[in-house]
Design a protein around this nucleic acid. Sequence first.
DNA 1: GAGTTTGAAACT
DNA 2: CAGTTTCAAACTC
Length: 763
Amino acid sequence: MMDTPEKTQISSSLSKFEESPVFNYINSLSPIKPVKSVHVTQTFNPLSFASLPSIFTSPHVSSHKESRFLKSYTDPLKPELSSADGTKVSTNEEAGADAQENFDQGVSLGETSFEMPNEPSRIAIGLPQTLKYDCGSPDCDATPCVIKTTSVSDTSLAIVPFVQEAPEKGLSDGVEVQDTFQVEQKRDSIGSEWESLISDTSDLLIFNSPNDSEAFRGVIQKPLDPGVLISQFSQDDTNEACQTTVDLDKYKDQTEGAGEMNEMNPVNESFEDASVTNFISGSLTDYMETRMSAPYSFKPDSNLHRGFRRRCLDFEMLAARRRNLDGCSTTNSSTDNKLVPGKPDSDSPRCIVPGIGLHLNALAIASRDNKNMKLETLSSGTQKLSFPSLNSPRTGGAETAYESLPSASTERETDAVENGVQLAEDASQASAYFVNEEFNQNSPKKKRRRLEQAGEGESCKRCNCKKSKCLKLYCECFAAGVYCIEPCSCQDCFNKPIHEDTVLATRKQIESRNPLAFAPKVIRTSDSVPEVGDDLITTPASARHKRGCNCKKSNCLKKYCECFQNSIFVVFKGGVGCSINCRCEGCKNAFGRKDGSAIVETDGEPGEEETDPSEKNVLDKNFEKADILNNEEQNPASALPTTPLQLCRPLVQLPFSSKSKPPRSFIAIGSSSTLYTGQRYGKPSIIRPQNIIEKHFQTIAEDETPEILRGNSSPGTGIKTLSPNSKRISPPQCELGSTPGGRSGRKLILQSIPSFPSLTPKH
DNA sequence: GAGTTTGAAACT
DNA sequence: CAGTTTCAAACTC
């Protein structure tokens, strides 16, 4: 490999590169002289970064990998970054130390964001710059190919290459790392590069994929310092693509579920292949789709997704659809097969959100799957991304998945933005969630919730059906398009792979009656676009319950109310409030009343709503109670689909749904799980009226958010800002696209938690 | 953990 | 479409 012609080319190019003014400039800027500038250069030269700029714009970069990204990124690029940003770029050593620290502290994204708020920005900035300058990060090796082939605009993609670098190596010694890196690079032929690239990308981009989640799990599960694991992982991925498998194995060994890891490897490989193919073809969309689809197609071994044992009923459809879409994607086909309904056994995670930010979601989901995971994760410090999503249990994941697919292909920017948001949210939520979980574990209620949520979050809800046989919408599992699993306490359950035929038949029947029966209940309205749908109209919240509630006694302040239920989670995305569609009586939903007023905005609210002390108490209680788990439901993803922003995403119709609406089940992950959602944020934080939250966010955002974020070039951000809910939140999210945002988001969350006073929405 | 409350889903 | 019943989650004790 080392001798491969390509390498040589690179070398030659390096020399050229060095000569270039840019190179000189960079060198001058960077405090640290890249030991092997040549090295870096090499990579970049080959690459044509022309397209890069666009890429970076997107927030998509998976935040979850941030830590990883940072590490790797910093090491190689650090010189560049420093020069480019002008901001202090951590030296390699620093980077390494930081990275390690970060990891140690907690891979947790949230933590990362807290402590290293700047880094994200740095990274974000650095990447683009790097591209401009062509300075190569060690990562560049792989990157170049990717970039060139894909003319993708996706940040995530662009980033991927960088990520590849193994952090750990760099950690201990910046210099050494570089050397090593060079050596490795040399060794690795282009082919290897591709692999590494792919693997990396997959990691970054597709955390959503079952594999990722599992990988994360592995990391998380690992009793050892998660950071270490992660770092290792990244190293392996980045530096030694070929060795990736081996490394993974290591992970396996480390991780309790060895089997999981094994599975992952294969999957990753397949993904890689597919991704490569896609890239080559030059279609980012394809790539994304592949990625997205991958998760579904995956049929993770049972072991992998223990938590996900449940299978997404909708998967089949997805798979089928996917097949249609991508006739070509090699991997897809395989994956699809896995998804095939026929397999009752399939453990595929039902809800993996395909979005870029998904990884976080995946994490969250994974965590949910395994309660243990949550804890572990917490320790590690990761978040939920859950991004997705995010919706009420029922709505859940299906939406996310559903949406995600289309969106990815169609709207990048939007997606990016949303993804970024999701990521941020997810991450934050996840972190919050984890935290909460840890704290909460003790209480029985919490326990219960955890279980429930875990199920939900994971995409799978746990049901307790006794008479419905889990074949009616009463059953959350069924409603979510998920099979019941062990955790369920249902009796005479027919919602199992064994009874797949029955399930499908029943499902169809229900859909025939109500095409939207399995559609996401919560529709995310575009924050930016106020008008949007019918739902929105009055409600300030960015998301709305599709049908609206019919509450009479709960005042929409309890989880009995589906709107409220969702609102709890949605906080980050914008709570789901009641809307005109609701027929509720005495609505006091803080996130949006039937009349359109929101507590937050309550300036003019009617006295009734205004806050009854008693009501307040209720809310607080509810919020508190409402575990983050609930929030998880919200999965942004689910909501997203409908959102105007989401709009971009073409809805993919599942075979099932008579109408175009996506079955929740699909995305279960995202939506239902909402995993991310961090409900955890601390209950308080989340719940609190948006005002408070927003304020917090703002404050934080303003103060802490990197310039980039503020300035945010990211298109998405601007838009989101519009919506009340998303406003504050969005900034971080958007940014996070790359990471910064994500972190910021995390920060916000964490910080917010403590600060959140009590509800007092009004003031 | 048992019992109650609640509102969605299902049914008529 | 409205009213009633069924159901399971949410909640309370």
